[in-house]
Design a protein around this nucleic acid. Sequence first.
DNA 1: TTAAAATATTAGACAGTGTTCAGTTAACCG
DNA 2: CGGTTAACTGAACACTGTCTAATATTTTAA
Lengths: 196, 196
Amino acid sequence: MGRRSDHTREQLREMIIAAGHREMAEAGYARFSARQVAKTIGYAIGTIYNVLGSYDQLVLAINGRTLDLWCDYLGSRLAGVNDDRLRAAIDAYFEFAILNRNAWGALYDFRLPPDEALPEYYAAKVTAITDLVVQEVASALPPAHIGEAPALARSLLASVHGHCVFTLNGTFQLLGEGDPLGAALARVRDAMARFG
Amino acid sequence: MGRRSDHTREQLREMIIAAGHREMAEAGYARFSARQVAKTIGYAIGTIYNVLGSYDQLVLAINGRTLDLWCDYLGSRLAGVNDDRLRAAIDAYFEFAILNRNAWGALYDFRLPPDEALPEYYAAKVTAITDLVVQEVASALPPAHIGEAPALARSLLASVHGHCVFTLNGTFQLLGEGDPLGAALARVRDAMARFG
DNA sequence: TTAAAATATTAGACAGTGTTCAGTTAACCG
DNA sequence: CGGTTAACTGAACACTGTCTAATATTTTAA
């Protein structure tokens, strides 16, 4: 029916993303369905496509929400920490991933078709998280080597990410690794040891 | 119809996995379809379910094939290498992933439902690859620390894996990382530097 | 030789999915 | 009042994985 008790496109977009994020968190990427999102907010599927444009854009918007939450989580987890902030950052990385398995996993389960580029708004959110890490690495680096912070941060991010993936997908359990977080921290320490 | 020019279950299983692996390599996990596999080998879908049991078992079998190929690739790439075998191993890890983007990606895109355990045959294949790496790490370690090889190998595997993931999913490109392989190697060197 | 059992294979129904779009409803504006 | 515009629907389409009753052939046993 027309617009008896309608929302504006902006409000509806927000409702869809919020409900979508909830469903992604509960069902996980493999069982996520746009139709189910429509059902839970009481709209027809067509509406979701009118507002978001496509399934891929919907998932991207939901993942964008997850990135926002992740960035906030890292920020709040680091606020007020004075010593060993690098360790706190790694802890927070793992914590968020474990606390939000499904939503976090969707960040990597979903990929745009190879010919399509990430929307700028999404790239900015990824960069925001990265910049946070770059800053922490820079603070932990001797002043003479601060210029290497961005490259080192990217690499450490990848290392920690790998440990996080192997933790959540069961690889570490299969291999008998009992302390994934400790291992990740050890690798970061090894890398920092290169600089005094 | 019946079994006029039929194959034995064993032969058919092999045909399905081979064709499935081919389709996975071409289409990727997101676009992979059991029905398409059936079509390319000229059988009905039902047959695939009779032979493999379920979609998940089919993908697992295909991924198992990929693990076999991966293990062989690592082995042959290391054969005859005398110095810096660790570097050769990392190179081979990246090479295989890049040369087999889709099949390699499916290894991690697919996950069994959380309540189901990996079949033993599959776990064995994962362990086979890991053992290869453990051996290389052990060789590169001072004799006094050989006992730490398994744990270190798992951790280095995770680190390299993280770099590999960020390379293939575009994260490194987004962040301006131009030498992912070099970064991965640097992290491994840092870790080995801990031991003399 | 013949009947029974085992095997290989199919067809088709079922309940889902993403996607599209012509059409409907209701509010707003001149 | 009539026209424009924005919000929204729902049916149709072409797929998907899953299951099962039925069928065709071969093997085995009596």
